[in-house]
Amino acid sequence: MAEAGAGNWCLIESDPGVFSELIRGFGVTGVQVEEIYSLDEDSFAPLKPVLGLIFLFKIDANSDTKSEGTLVQDNRLDEMFFAKQVIQNACATQAIINLLMNAKQESLDLGDNLKTFKDFTKSFDPQTAGLAMSNQEQLREVHNSFARQQVFELEDNSGAKDEDLFHFVGYLPVNGRLYELDGLNEGPLDHGAIGEGADWLSKAREVLQKRIEKYSSSEIRFNLMAIIKDRRLKYEQEIEELKTKTSAQSSEENLIEMARLESLLEAENMKWKQYKVDNIRRRHNYIPLIVNVLQVLAEQGKLTEFYETAAKRTKELKKSETQSK
């Protein structure tokens, strides 16, 4: 089992349940994370208000897939929080923290730890803010608590680095302009004015679509998530408002809407419970169970039989895949 040591940050899974509980672990309340499967406007509408977007993509050194945003180097840096990434494997938390520190939403509560950290780093340049973040014990512990259990850690001495590298960045509006927060850059990237009365998500979709199109048509490994208002708070507030209306003037429409909202609230509560179960399973060490199962199969003389059956099925699957190509 590979374990994140002191000062190290582990890789974590790109998953809304992981990110939602990660944010809770930081002490932040009032928001959650939802996955977006399409850049169509209809995919964004049910999520509003959206505080920020988290985009995962492959770092491709062989093609011009870099962002076209303009590096911010003026006094706007004094009004924005930006921490440069100075440690490996922390880009998920880096993107989330950079977004949360700049997001504007009445439901968002950063919590004592991040509020103190934001005040402490107020006058820091991006490099120093990144160093300060890398030394934030609570952030590192919460981040590493989502490390996936590994049975073996193999050392590659061949010198070959064929494994694809993926990276998280954030997008959000600040003072009427769209910014990209990428910890690998020296500062925020400005993607231009949003336009008076325009929806910032429309501009963000255009920027993301243009960036995705820079990759070859065979590259489909992208992931997009949104930091949104906690839907439980949203539904609870709407239920309370409806209760006031219903008590003043009862109607069948209000009662139907009340039932709908209560159903949605229950679904959200169940989803959060499932997040906890899923994340417990991610953290759980299954190695003792696997070893015990193998021992029992060996004692019953079935281990060789199971192995041969599995090897045969694997061979058949590979043959089937080859024929279908």
Rank of each mutant, 00 (worst) to 15 (best):
T128Q: 13
A310N: 12
A92M: 12
D278I: 08
D199W: 04
K48D: 01
K243F: 11
G52S: 13
M258V: 07
D60W: 02
K115C: 07
E79K: 15
A45T: 14
S217M: 10
L261D: 06
P126V: 07
I287R: 12
E106T: 02
Q94Y: 08
Q85D: 10
K104P: 01
R313N: 03
A259F: 03
I220F: 06
N135T: 08
G183Y: 01
I220L: 13
K302N: 08
D15S: 15
S217C: 07
E68P: 01
S134K: 15
L317T: 05
K203D: 01
D109S: 06
G192S: 10
G5L: 14
Q73A: 14
F166P: 04
L51D: 00
L108K: 02
L264R: 10
F82V: 12
S320Q: 11
Q323R: 15
E153L: 06
E253G: 04
T128H: 07
I227Q: 02
D278Y: 06
I256Y: 11
E106V: 04
V207S: 01
I59M: 15
Y235A: 03
Q88D: 15
M80S: 11
K273R: 08
N98G: 00
K319C: 04
M225F: 04
S134R: 15
E186Q: 15
A267S: 13
G301I: 13
K214I: 02
E186G: 14
E268V: 05
G27R: 05
G183F: 02
R282W: 07
E141C: 05
P49I: 02
R205F: 03
K315L: 13
D42L: 14
S216V: 03
N8L: 07
K276W: 09
M270V: 11
Q138S: 15
F26A: 05
L139V: 15
L53R: 04
P126F: 12
I36S: 06
I239A: 00
L47W: 02
A92L: 10
W9K: 07
K234Y: 00
S43W: 03
A95Y: 05
G52D: 04
E241C: 09
R221P: 08
I212R: 13
E137M: 12
I59V: 15
N75M: 15
L100N: 01
Q295V: 05
N254D: 14
S14K: 09
P173K: 01
N113V: 10
D156L: 09
S202E: 13
D164A: 07
S63Y: 08
M80Y: 07
E236W: 02
R221Y: 12
S38P: 00
L100T: 00
I228T: 10
S63K: 13
D190F: 13
G176N: 09
G130M: 09
M225P: 00
M270S: 12
T246D: 05
I227A: 03
E180L: 15
L233C: 07
N254Q: 13
D164E: 03
K276V: 11
G7N: 04
G69S: 09
F117C: 02
M225D: 00
Q295K: 11
T121M: 06
S218I: 10
L71R: 07
V86R: 04
C91W: 06
S320F: 08
T116Y: 09
N144S: 14
L99W: 01
G27H: 05
G197P: 08
A311G: 02
D156P: 03
L178I: 06
D15L: 11
S145Y: 09
S145L: 11
D278V: 08
V142W: 09
A83G: 03
L100H: 02
R281F: 14
C10W: 08
